[in-house]
């Protein structure tokens, strides 16, 4: 009986083995090559740099879990959209109270995701097309709102980017996001999201309100996107309309590195956070080598290779589990 229970846990969380293993290896390598990372300021810097990516990846997670191949390509520009509106509209308009900033960021993120969910559900366009259109539209809109990087974050946020202490506000935002995930994880919505993602027809015939579930997943993703934007605004203490595209690519990579299935049903906060942390550690490690001109190419090559290897490893472990 114990073995049966073990097997069930393995089947549920076995996909975490690869990201966790990679995380341990990368941490050991980083400790050897870049020991300064594990000092107070090193970790403080790591948190503020990694937080937007962690939260972007977290934002993708419920949306990809709900299936139909809905990888939200618009996540980066959406974060950028919240960032530029926070700086160009709210801060310049004098609305700088932390409550107003957080409410705006999470509300805007959720509203945009709601819109995407409604288009996917009722206009019946494939999610990838909807999010690709959003990506293009938002990239343009961001440049219209803020033609070039600039502006200032609210005063209370200005010191976030200095990253001198591990217990910075950014750390608390990330912790709050993880708590929110824990609430979601305990709720029935979580099970319904997984069921809908794994087999939408079966979920529907079992009485799951799949449309509401999809909307719920998008709303949750939108809230995380808003939090990502708050952390990003803190990191750069200003607005930037050009960085969104980068985050889409990185977050999707981190999502896959974290073991989530792009076809839905499988994924979670632990995997996504590990995926994002692994991305950070790889970049950190590569910076300790003298690649000079080719360091950009080396970084991309490394991410590509790690992605392929971890996908293969994931596929192998999944195979082993299903043949048992």
């Amino acid at each position: 009986m114990n073995r049966a229970a073990n097997r069930r846990v393995l089947a549920h969380y076995g996909y975490l083995a690869v990201p966790l293993g990679l995380f341990i290896v990368l941490t050991i390598l980083a400790a050897m090559r870049s020991p300064n990372l594990f000092t107070g300021t090193g970790l403080a810097g790591a948190v503020i740099v990694a937080a937007p990516l962690i939260l972007c990846t977290l934002a993708l997670t419920p949306i990809v879990m709900v299936g139909r191949g809905s990888v939200d390509l618009s996540i980066g520009p959406l974060m950028g959209f919240v960032n530029v509106t926070l700086v160009a509209w709210l801060t310049q308009g004098g609305f700088t109270h932390p409550l107003a900033i957080f409410a705006w960021a999470m509300g805007l993120g959720a509203a945009f995701q709601l819109l995407q969910a409604l288009v996917i559900l009722y206009v019946r366009v494939a999610p990838i097309i909807v999010s690709l259109s959003s990506y293009l539209v938002l990239t343009g809109v961001n440049l219209l709102i803020m033609p070039r990087a600039g502006g200032l974050a609210p005063d209370w946020m200005m010191a976030w980017g200095a990253g001198r202490s591990l217990l910075s506000p950014v750390t608390f935002v990330v912790i709050a996001a993880l708590l929110l995930w824990a609430v979601f994880w305990r709720s029935t919505l979580h099970g319904h999201v997984r069921l809908t993602g794994a087999d939408e027809r079966m979920a529907y015939t079992s009485g799951v309100a799949t449309e509401k579930v999809r909307i719920g997943a998008h709303l949750l993703g939108g809230v995380f996107a808003g939090l990502a934007a708050v952390c990003y605004t803190g990191l750069i203490a200003s607005g930037d309309p050009t960085q969104g595209a980068n985050y889409t690519l990185q977050a999707v990579t981190a999502l896959v590195l974290g073991g989530a299935s792009l076809s839905g049903g499988r994924g979670g906060a632990v995997g996504s956070v590990l995926g994002a942390l692994n991305m950070f550690l790889v970049a950190n490690l590569l910076a300790t080598f003298h690649f000079e001109m080719i360091s950009g190419a080396a970084t991309k090559l490394a991410f590509g290779l790690i992605l392929v290897v971890s996908l293969l490893a994931n596929a192998l472990t999944a195979n082993r589990m299903s043949t048992r």
């Binding site: 810097g45 740099v49 990003y232 750069i236 930037d240 960085q243 970084t299």
Partner: peptide, 15 residues
Amino acid sequence: QSDLKDAVQIQQMRQ
């Protein structure tokens, strides 16, 4: 080299 990613450049400079 940060490949035009601000966050990566921030990380590299801090390093």
